[in-house]
Write a protein that binds this DNA or RNA. Structure first.
Lengths: 338, 338
DNA sequence: TTGAAAGCGTTACCAA
DNA sequence: TTGGTAACGCTTTCAA
């Protein structure tokens, strides 16, 4: 076992096993033709030396890195984490390794990040959302690899898409509220200039209200994303002060809705009789809270799985052989809060 | 702008700018000496060609990858996600890029993952937990790079450590319960054979009970980790059936505690009068639930920041110049549930 | 400030 | 089944 700083190379293993480096290379590829005994001897020598194949060199020579670049706004978001987790699991047997980066809900940070990730020469790239800087678009268009936008249905997609309409998801919630007989509806979200998916939901929400001829003024926004449970509570407090006769509120995410729910409970308001509440994302909390929270399920995990399958197909059969979009239909999960 | 599959190389940029590849290389390093005009011309040529420096080749030649390998049990865990998020943010200016992998709470999966990550030649590696297979230990010991174990205080650390005692954290909760006058205490956790930190908490919990001469039988375990809110509820139901006179229960994490809390509420039990509840991890839910949940704060974010600082020091000054352990002291956050 | 040559560790390619 | 040679795209090194 070698203890020094410099790690062993293929030549070292080759010498110890009495073969050429080329044969060592083959011994590490399961599909290459190497004599069984020879391979055993090589693997033993490698084990003795603590040798681990240097992917850096391998990648350069073969022009394949095995990287899949993925960007999400934040790792501290159960929805995006679930998508990435499911995607990673679904890719397990392909040998692709996820190279993950966070944009912090900022298109300029996204640009910086994507340039850095492309430098690693990933074989495909998955980005969350469909809003980017012009340079980001150009980088992705010229990267020469499959590009998949997720969690959105961009008007002008760069490449392939696995997503859903955030606006339509919010419209569904409006219709759900209205079907319960509520007519004075409000929306709680974050500073939408950064969270474009949150903005889409908000716009869908108020567009549907306008279409139905209902009041579109009841909107409380918190600070920059991610918006927290606590902010959900303070926003609900503001909603109740500014528009006390509000009957139902949709929140940009379930954690926010939970905060809003607890604020109502703290004030002794009965839910949904005095205030109905809807969330977004089908987080665990929406099912375990008392009462449970009505939410929109877009299946974060399914987005990850579908994206993984699309990537496999793209790398195997090429961009032309794969449908450009996989559209997911949001579902309302009706619960006791509305 | 080049549209073809093959992306531009430094030579392409060099030709277009009328310089040697070496000068292009220098132009991309901010500290290298290049004539200002020449650099401008080169960067323009690069922009025209959509050129992005190939880190794969750069890394091989310079024997530096800029990768920091990090393993966590699961991305679907707000505590670990927070640690990674804080670590990534703290490393932003160092140029280090986090290469993240998930062990799925499985030491064999960890072994496979770490071997894969080491092949990428990271400059340091951070692993969550201090329990590994013998081969994993050997791999890490011989990797020739700084190794940091986190979220634990291993008995036989491999290298450096940023962590806390999970057992002591649970003992603190026992003492907190006992100080409130509770004597019949239970523990709700997962299948501890896989979640070693959960196991440490459980053992600390019952060790402290034994030390105080209290009943150590009240233990309900769910399936393999991660254990969910819903399982927290079902485990609390089982606890109430098997040991109806239990006065206080510690749960392995806050989401589990929230599930347990709602189960009590569903049954009309008053908390903490008829059942006190404690959690772990200082999740948002512990502060927003009604009532709020008593928890143990180990500052997941601080673990990330301290780890980042330790890595910077290790890479700058070498292993000998950096203290082997940074120990974090858990704090009880007393809330209305106990 | 710039350039030429060499080489990082591996694998593609061709030959035996 | 095995080996020799060249090359992946860049940076180190040395020289001008």
């Amino acid at each position: 076992m070698v203890k020094t700083g410099k790690s062993a190379t293929m030549s070292d293993v080759a010498k110890r096993a009495g073969v050429s480096p080329m044969t060592v290379s083959r011994a590490f590829k399961s599909d290459a033709s190497v004599n069984a005994e020879t391979r055993a001897r090589i693997l033993e020598a490698a084990e003795d030396l603590g040798y681990i194949l240097d992917s850096t060199a391998s990648n350069l020579r073969s022009q394949k890195t095995g990287f899949l670049a993925v960007t999400i706004p934040s790792i501290n978001n159960a929805n995006f984490a679930e998508t990435v987790g499911a995607m990673t699991a679904a890719l397990r047997d392909t040998g692709l390794q996820v190279l993950l980066g966070y944009t912090n809900y900022d298109v300029d940070e996204e640009e910086r990040l994507i340039a850095q990730l492309l430098g690693r020469r990933p074989e495909a790239i998955v980005v969350t959302g469909g809003t980017h800087t012009p340079r980001t678009r150009k980088l992705l268009e010229n990267a020469g690899i499959p590009v998949i936008e997720t969690w959105d249905l961009p008007t002008h997609p760069i490449g392939h898409v696995v997503g859903f309409s955030n606006a339509e998801a919010a419209r569904m919630m409006v219709r759900h509220f209205v079907a319960q007989g509520f007519t004075r509806l409000g929306f709680i979200g974050g500073d939408a200039s950064r969270d474009t998916r949150g903005l889409d939901r908000r716009q869908g929400f108020f567009d549907e209200l306008a279409k139905l001829g209902l009041d579109t003024a009841r909107h409380v926004a918190s600070g920059p994303p991610p918006i927290t449970m606590r902010e959900g509570a303070t926003c609900m407090a503001e909603m109740l002060e500014r528009w006390p006769d509000t009957q139902a509120v949709m929140c940009v995410s379930d954690p926010v809705a939970f905060g809003a729910l607890t604020e109502c409970q703290r004030r002794g308001l009965s839910v949904p009789q005095q205030m109905a509440i809807g969330g977004f994302g089908a987080y665990d909390i929406s099912e375990q809270s008392l009462p449970r929270i009505t939410t929109v399920d877009v299946s974060a995990a399914e987005i990850g799985v579908q994206t993984a399958q699309m990537i496999e197909a793209l790398l195997l059969r090429g961009p032309e052989a794969v449908p450009m979009r996989h559209v997911i239909t949001p579902r309302i999960l009706a619960r006791e809060t509305s």
